[in-house]
Design a protein around this nucleic acid. Structure first.
Lengths: 232, 232
DNA sequence: GCTCTCCCTTGATCGAAGTCAAAACTTCCA
DNA sequence: TGGAAGTTTTGACTTCGATCAAGGGAGAGC
C-alpha cells in the first residue's frame, strides 16, 4: 500500500480521529487488492467478514429479490461501505460489484470491532458514520415514495451539477442503465424521462446534459434539502 | 414517572448496558408527557432537541415533500426514535405524530450526547441501535423498489402473523389508510390489493385477515429474509 | 336509537412505469 | 477498418398505481 493511499484512508472521517496505534493495528490486519471491472466483491446473504474501502475506481451496491434487481448506491473513492453489517456481525443486505478497475482495502470485521472497543474516538466516528448513512437511506426512501421517475432524475441532475461546481452543464459519470437502477426505473423509462426533461430546461446529448433553463428545471424538480442535500 | 416505566425504559437494548449513574443523569434531565391522538410531536426540518421514547400508545413517523406525504414507520412501546438526528445535532428528516393517546419520554439531545461520551457501554449500544435502524431502512427501500404493492402487503401480513405467533389469522393494528402510506400506496390501492390477495389465500374482513391458504400466500409473496426478517 | 362524520370500498378513468421488440449508436477488439 | 457485442433510444402495448367520484358501514356523540 502506497504512503499516499494510507494518508487518504487516514483522512476519511471514519478514521481521522482514531489513535495512531489503533489505525496501524487496523491496517496491519488488512490487505489491498486490485479488481477488474464487473467483479462481485460481496454477495448479499453472506456473512460480513470485511469492511471494504474504495481507494480507487468505483463500486456499485445492489440488491436482488424475487428475480428483480436494483441499485442502492454508488461508492466512489475514498469511502467505506457496508459498515452496519460488519458491526452487527451479520450477513450483508447488499451485494457489491466494481464498475471499473478498482483498488479495494479490505479490513477484517473482527479487527474493526476490536478497534472500536479499544478506541473511543473511533467508536464516536463510527456513530457519526452510521448516523449519516442512515439519514442518507431515509432520503432515498423518501425520494422513492414521494416522487415520480422524472422528478427523481431532475433532482439527481441538479445535485450532480452542484457537485461538479455547476457551470450550467453536467457530465454523467455512470452508465445510464446503472443510473436507471439507482433511480428506481428501467433503462427505457430513464430515456423517456430524459426526453421529458427537454421541455423543462435540461437537454441530454450522450453523457452530457445542458441546463438550458435552470429555473424551469428546478420548478419541475421541486428540490427539497431534506431529500436532496447531502449534508443535511 | 412510575417505577415500572423506568424499568421498562432501562430494559431497552439502547439503555440496558449503560451505567446506573449515566442512566439516572439522563432521566433527571428528561420529562415524561402525555399526548392525545393525532398530536404532531416532531416536525421535519426542525432541529433535533430531544430523543423520544414511546412508553405507551403509538407513534407514526412520516415525511412530506412536494405536496405528497408518506409514512416511514410505526413506533410501538417501548422504543426510541430519531436517534440519528439527535446524534448529529441536525434537523429531523421525519415528522412524528401520535396515532393514539400516548406517553412519551423526552430526553434532551445534549444529554444523550454527553451520556454517550461519558459511558462507552452506552455508545456501543448506540452503535448497535443505529446499525439496526440502518439495516431496517435498507430493507424498506429494497421492498419499495423490488416489489409491487400487493406483494408488499402480502409480506407485511406474513410478518405480522409471525409477530402474533401466527394461528392462521392476524389482527391489523393500524388504520388502513396509515398502512397504505406505510406500504407506499393509496388507500384505494390497498383495498384492491386486499381484494387481489383473496385469490392467493388471504381473506380480509374488517381488521381481521384469515389465512385460508398459507402456502399460496407465501408463493405469491416470495418472502425474503433479507427484506422481511426483522432480525437479519 | 339516530344522525353525523370519518373511514373503507368499489367503479371509472388517467397517468406512470414495466415489458417486448427492433433500430440506432458506441465501444472495443480482432 | 470492420465487425461484434453491448448500450441507448424509440415505438407499441400492458400492467400497475393514482385520481376522481360515489356509495356503504362503523363508531361517536346527542
Amino acid at each position: 500500500m502506497r504512503p499516499e493511499d494510507v494518508s487518504e484512508v487516514r483522512a476519511l472521517a471514519l478514521f481521522r480521529d482514531m489513535r495512531d496505534t489503533t489505525f496501524e493495528t487496523l491496517l496491519q490486519a488488512s490487505f489491498l487488492q486490485r479488481f477488474p471491472p464487473g467483479v462481485v466483491l460481496i454477495r448479499e446473504n453472506e456473512s460480513a467478514d470485511f469492511l471494504h474501502v474504495v481507494i480507487e475506481g468505483g463500486v456499485e451496491m445492489f440488491a436482488a429479490s424475487g428475480g428483480r434487481e436494483t441499485t442502492i448506491s454508488f461508492e466512489r473513492p475514498v469511502s467505506a461501505f457496508i459498515l452496519a453489517a460488519v458491526l452487527k456481525d451479520q450477513v450483508y443486505l447488499q451485494s457489491a460489484r466494481t464498475v471499473e478497475a478498482s483498488r479495494i482495502l479490505m479490513i477484517p470485521s473482527a479487527s474493526v470491532r476490536r478497534a472500536m472497543d479499544a478506541d473511543p474516538a473511533f467508536m464516536a466516528a463510527v456513530v457519526a458514520e452510521l448516523a449519516t448513512a442512515y439519514r442518507s437511506v431515509v432520503k432515498d426512501l423518501k425520494s422513492q415514495k414521494l416522487r415520480t421517475g422524472a422528478e427523481r432524475l431532475a433532482n439527481w441532475l441538479l445535485r450532480l451539477e452542484r457537485e461538479q461546481n455547476g457551470q450550467g452543464h453536467v457530465e454523467i459519470d455512470v452508465e445510464k442503465r446503472q443510473l436507471a437502477a439507482r433511480l428506481g426505473m428501467t433503462p427505457e423509462n430513464l430515456s423517456r424521462a430524459f426526453a421529458a426533461l427537454k421541455a423543462h430546461g435540461a437537454a441530454v446529448r450522450g453523457m452530457r446534459v445542458e441546463f438550458t433553463d435552470r429555473a424551469a428545471l428546478a420548478a419541475f424538480a421541486q428540490p427539497d434539502p431534506l431529500v436532496d442535500d447531502e449534508r443535511s
